[in-house]
Design a protein around this nucleic acid. Structure first.
Length: 194
DNA sequence: CCCTGATTCGC
DNA sequence: GCGAATCAGG
């Protein structure tokens, strides 16, 4: 595959949006993430800053975008007597703090499960689920990837909340067991009068 | 182990 | 210019 204008454009766009090299590579097809990274560097936009055209979206508030900085801390000249409180330095507030880092967009190809009420799923599947939940990797939201089960467990409002995290079934957002309760054939859920 | 970007270097 | 291999890290 060659880097046609269109492909380069898409690359720029996605990179500017904070997409990872591998995601971009998948989107483009025919290239590996290495190819994407290589191209990104050659294009000189390795610093995730060049959102170029219009699109801003800067997930990186950190870092000092200072083009240059005169290592001039405090001239301290005598031009001003002591009446000036001396504006400290240039640094207003210590801009460090937590790094928002890159926002990992969870593709969540499929909608998250609506936490089916236990009384609507087959007993077998239910039992199977409670079994695997013991083996679940208990991943946090940030740790989810395209191949980790995205089945939520617990109450999101409490600390006792996590995602299954086991290997997903090919093409599905959940592991085998959770796919079982998430995608039930209508035949098995119909007729359940109470 | 999964993933991330950065660099190198033969092509 | 290209990108696989490799490196360095989470």
């Amino acid at each position: 595959m060659a880097w046609t204008d269109e492909r380069v454009e898409l690359l720029k766009k996605m990179w500017g949006e904070g997409q990872s090299a591998s995601q971009i590579a998948k989107e483009l097809g025919g290239v590996t993430r290495n190819a994407v990274i290589g191209k990104v560097h050659r294009l000189g936009l390795s610093n995730r800053a060049g959102a170029g055209t219009g699109a801003a979206a800067k997930p990186e508030p950190a870092k000092a975008p200072k083009p240059e900085a005169k290592p001039k801390p405090a001239p301290k000249a005598d031009t001003r007597p002591k009446s000036e409180p001396v504006p400290a330095t240039e640094e207003p507030a210590v801009a460090k703090s937590a790094t928002p880092a890159r926002r990992q967009i969870i593709p969540a190809g499929q909608p998250l499960p609506p936490q089916p009420s236990a009384n609507e799923i087959s007993p077998e599947a239910l039992a199977k689920v409670s079994e695997i939940e013991k083996k679940a990797k208990r991943l946090s939201l940030m740790e989810l990837t395209e191949r980790t089960c995205k089945w939520p467990v617990g109450d999101p409002a409490t600390e006792d909340f996590w995602f299954c995290g086991l290997p997903v079934q090919q093409g599905k957002p959940y592991c085998e067991a959770h796919v079982g309760v998430a995608f039930q054939p209508m035949s098995s859920r119909r007729d359940r009068r109470r």
